[in-house]
Amino acid sequence: MQPGRAIEQDVKDVQDELLLKTASGDQSAFAELYRISSPRLYGLCVRMLRERGTAEEVLQEAWITVWHRASTFDRAKASANTWLGTLFRNKAIDRLRQRKEEVLDDPDLMNDLEDDVPSPAEGAEQSQDYLRLSECLEQLRPQQRRAVREAFFSGVTYNELAARCQVPLGTMKSWIRRSLLQLRTCLDP
């Protein structure tokens, strides 16, 4: 294993342990998890929301959710890093949807929002993992690749994707699930 990968694995193991301790009500473990995980999670929120103030609000709301829902973390299903990333991403998507609902009645505001805010996909391009993820995404079939990108970088729901692609909802869910499994296999060292 490469030295950088070994350090990454150590950090992931520490995060797993801290999240498990948090689930049992250990406040010091929660504080340490917050300390080592917040910068990355805050970056995720800023990239998705494009407003620092809103990102800070979502970050705080999500950490409260972590405290209350840490007991649902299952190390066998995902790492703490993945569990936290998913929770924070979903909170950010909820906020984006809320924002879209607020401006839907005013087309000028909607156009301004779309023009001024780079997409989450553009933010992901700046990360060091973008190239690796891009290579793995290219291995997916075009429709599935598009569905995964829209679901995870644009916050489009499965229902919306199914309607856009004119396929049953169950088919869309299967596409996404199989695609994620294929991506996981590709991204795992």
Results as ranks from 00 to 15, higher is better:
residue 118 P to Y: 10
residue 9 Q to E: 06
residue 40 R to E: 06
residue 131 L to R: 15
residue 115 D to E: 14
residue 51 E to F: 03
residue 98 Q to F: 14
residue 18 L to H: 07
residue 62 A to I: 04
residue 90 N to T: 10
residue 12 K to Y: 09
residue 13 D to V: 09
residue 147 A to E: 03
residue 56 E to Q: 14
residue 131 L to G: 15
residue 40 R to S: 12
residue 76 A to Q: 12
residue 7 I to A: 07
residue 85 G to M: 09
residue 188 D to C: 15
residue 30 F to G: 02
residue 100 K to M: 13
residue 22 T to I: 01
residue 111 N to D: 14
residue 126 Q to N: 12
residue 75 R to S: 11
residue 173 K to T: 04
residue 3 P to M: 06
residue 132 R to D: 04
residue 94 D to R: 10
residue 114 E to G: 00
residue 128 Q to E: 13
residue 109 L to G: 02
residue 163 A to M: 02
residue 53 G to M: 03
residue 30 F to P: 00
residue 114 E to K: 13
residue 98 Q to C: 08
residue 146 R to L: 06
residue 7 I to D: 00
residue 162 A to Q: 02
residue 168 P to I: 09
residue 43 G to R: 10
residue 123 G to K: 04
residue 66 V to Y: 03
residue 114 E to L: 11
residue 165 C to E: 12
residue 38 S to E: 07
residue 173 K to A: 12
residue 182 Q to Y: 04
residue 155 G to W: 12
residue 117 V to D: 11
residue 56 E to W: 00
residue 183 L to G: 07
residue 72 T to K: 08
residue 6 A to W: 01
residue 49 L to A: 00
residue 119 S to Q: 15
residue 35 R to K: 14
residue 133 L to A: 06
residue 123 G to Y: 01
residue 8 E to H: 11
residue 112 D to V: 06
residue 166 Q to S: 13
residue 49 L to I: 10
residue 166 Q to C: 06
residue 149 R to V: 08
residue 182 Q to K: 15
residue 89 R to Y: 08
residue 67 W to E: 00
residue 158 Y to E: 07
residue 139 Q to G: 08
residue 58 V to L: 13
residue 101 E to K: 15
residue 71 S to N: 12
residue 35 R to D: 04
residue 7 I to C: 04
residue 21 K to Y: 04
residue 188 D to W: 05
residue 78 A to N: 05
residue 1 M to I: 02
residue 129 D to R: 13
residue 73 F to L: 01
residue 164 R to D: 15
residue 176 I to G: 02
residue 25 G to W: 06
residue 175 W to E: 10
residue 184 R to L: 14
residue 160 E to H: 09
residue 144 Q to M: 03
residue 59 L to M: 12
residue 86 T to Q: 14
residue 31 A to M: 02
residue 171 T to R: 13
residue 150 E to H: 08
residue 100 K to R: 14
residue 101 E to W: 08
residue 113 L to T: 06
residue 30 F to Q: 06
residue 34 Y to N: 10
residue 122 E to C: 05
